[in-house]
Design a protein around this nucleic acid. Structure first.
Lengths: 147, 147
DNA sequence: CAGCTAGGGTTCGGAATCCGAACTTTGGGG
DNA sequence: CCCCAAAGTTCGGATTCCGAACCCTAGCTG
């Protein structure tokens, strides 16, 4: 239950890593970004058991990543929508996808395309230096341990 | 075992999401990027059981994300180092950290700093359009489903 | 040379999670 | 009145995880 005590060292990387590195959470997020909002749709799109889905959705809701919004398809039901905090995970998913395109392409390609709404261009993710603007890889960065 | 049959739809996002969305994998990766290389060091830094650590390291090795390199501290031992494929996951971790800084700051901040080796500047991640160069968020992108 | 130590594992029993299938709840339609 | 849909809940069995102990081997230590 305590997704948090899973790390010795609590930092702004280990905390999200512990949350999103729990089974199903990344896949749930992917599904949410693809537009899925309802319980039944998540359940059939991913192949997750209903009980675990209930629990993961609840976790996301109380982490403030999804929000439970009523909609009426005759009577009151709820759907799950990304909050601002959730939408802000976009770069993470884009980085994952970019990596996947390069290193895990499953032969028959991907199942969806992404394009900039305004100009139709492709989406890219990059890491860069805020000072000199140069593009950065793991080797260009120095880690300084604190504490 | 089959981290792969966990998704209905195999794409370049769901595949990495299934791999990295397994318990411990993201945290293991973080640790690797922080410079940890040896079994014992992983084991004591994270609070993972030895048997699961063995298994996760093996998975990463046969996914080609880590590579097992002999080193001699008197006799032959092995350490785990990021491969090119592994290092290429850097943007994913940076995106996670950026999100963590904004949304999950644990009050006492983070445990390490990152700076561009050459100029000392800060590291940033951004999603942008390859055509017009504009910065993109989730709302600026259109998803087109294929198949 | 007997014994200890370090590093990197393996083994194993019990605890925590997950799965799948069935069941529940509530309002609307036929 | 019966059935359906959507969103859960329950529960027994299967998996996975945990923690602690054990294994193996070369090199020190005395």
């Amino acid at each position: 239950m305590s997704r948090v005590k899973v790390v010795d060292e609590l930092c702004t990387l280990s905390l999200p890593a512990a949350l999103l590195g729990e089974r199903w959470t990344l896949l749930l997020l992917r599904q949410a970004f693809l537009g899925t909002r309802r319980f039944e749709d998540f359940q059939s799109a991913m192949d997750i058991s209903r009980s675990v889905l209930t629990e993961r959705l609840a976790t996301f809701v109380d982490e403030g990543i999804l929000r439970r919004v009523p909609y009426k398809d005759s009577r009151t039901r709820y759907e799950y929508r990304l909050t601002e905090k959730g939408l802000d995970l976009y770069p993470v998913l884009m980085a994952l996808r970019k990596w996947g395109d390069k290193w895990m392409a499953p032969a028959d390609g991907t199942s969806f395309d992404l394009h900039h709404k305004d100009c139709g261009g492709d989406v890219d993710v990059k890491v860069e230096c805020t000072a000199c603007g140069e593009g950065l890889g793991a080797r260009d960065v120095r880690v300084t341990r604190l504490r």
